[in-house]
Design a protein around this nucleic acid. Structure first.
Length: 159
DNA sequence: TTAGGTAGTCTCG
DNA sequence: CGAGACTACCTAA
């Protein structure tokens, strides 16, 4: 039962429409939207910047985002999301590897990845299971896994 | 292949 | 608050 999100921009991309929510000048959340909604042009400067960097990434995977981010979560979730941002483009880590660094457990890491509010930019798609692809955006199969596969292929990773 | 272990979060009451 | 259930998992046998 979420309040209806108010997007500052809805932009199209190779993985479908992305809805952006800002909090001040920082990026607060990215949603994968169904393709039957109207695109919405970014108006303020910081939102334009986000859209621009996303488009750049989709054109050229080897691109480091430089954006003010404002992910909201528990201290543990924040520490996991911070680890994700240290994974270089074209590499992957397993849930267990992240867990080891944080002295935690693989399932807990999976839980935190599932709650990542900034997919694509906080690269939770670069985390896979020791045996298998893991999940994405709460799904272990379906459209979101297709997106995960696309992102990894885009970065030159072969699952 | 599965059984059991594990860590963090959520949901009731 | 507390117990129990629910995971985008992992390891040993």
């Amino acid at each position: 039962m979420n309040p209806i999100p108010h997007y500052q921009a809805i932009t199209s991309s190779p993985i479908g429409l992305l809805g952006l929510i800002m909090e001040g000048d920082a990026l607060y959340s990215i949603d994968f939207l169904a393709d039957d909604v109207e695109p919405l042009a970014a108006e303020d400067r910081s939102t334009i910047q986000v859209v621009s960097q996303l488009q750049h990434y989709f054109r050229q995977a080897d691109w480091c985002f430089s954006l003010p981010l404002k992910p909201v979560g528990t201290p543990f979730q924040l520490s996991v999301w911070q680890q994700l941002q240290q994974i270089p483009v074209g590499e992957v880590r397993t849930y267990g590897e992240i867990a080891k660094v944080l002295k935690s457990g693989p399932r807990a890491v999976g839980n935190a990845c599932r709650k990542n509010p900034l997919p694509v930019i906080v690269p939770c798609h670069r985390v896979v299971a020791a045996s298998g692809p893991g999940g994405y955006a709460g799904q272990t199969q379906g459209r979101n896994m297709t997106i995960k596969g696309w992102l990894l292929a885009h970065e030159g990773v072969t699952i």
